[in-house]
């Protein structure tokens, strides 16, 4: 099975995780309609390298993973705190 390197639990079967979607920028609450629609519905649906939120179900633990959607390779993972410290709250 595909192995996900979880920052808390170490290498684990990917079936223990769920994908929470691409890391996105939350628009300000007073943004215009088009910006809000874009945030709610539209997807990058990236073909290539993407950073996403992932969740380890047995521990209810959220973290960020970088992977390549063309090859199904997982390149890197960060604990949520470290990721936000490195890339800022707003990424």
């Amino acid at each position: 099975m595909k192995i996900m390197p979880c920052p808390l639990n170490g290498p684990r079967n990917i079936s223990e995780f769920s994908c929470g979607g691409e890391v996105e920028h939350l628009p300000p609450p007073d943004c215009d309609h088009a910006t809000w629609i874009d945030y709610v519905y539209l997807e990058n649906n990236t073909r290539g390298i993407v950073r996403e939120w992932w969740y380890h179900t047995p521990t209810a633990y959220w973290f960020v993973a970088e992977r390549d959607t063309r090859t199904d390779e997982i390149l890197r993972t960060w604990p949520a705190g470290e990721f936000l410290a490195e890339f800022g709250e707003r990424r």
């Binding site: 639990n9 684990r12 079967n13 079936s15 223990e16 380890h56 179900t57 047995p58 521990t59």
Partner: peptide
């Protein structure tokens, strides 16, 4: 190990 045993969170 907080993991899956017989498809359950254990």
């Amino acid at each position: 190990a907080q993991t899956s045993v017989a498809r359950m969170n254990v």
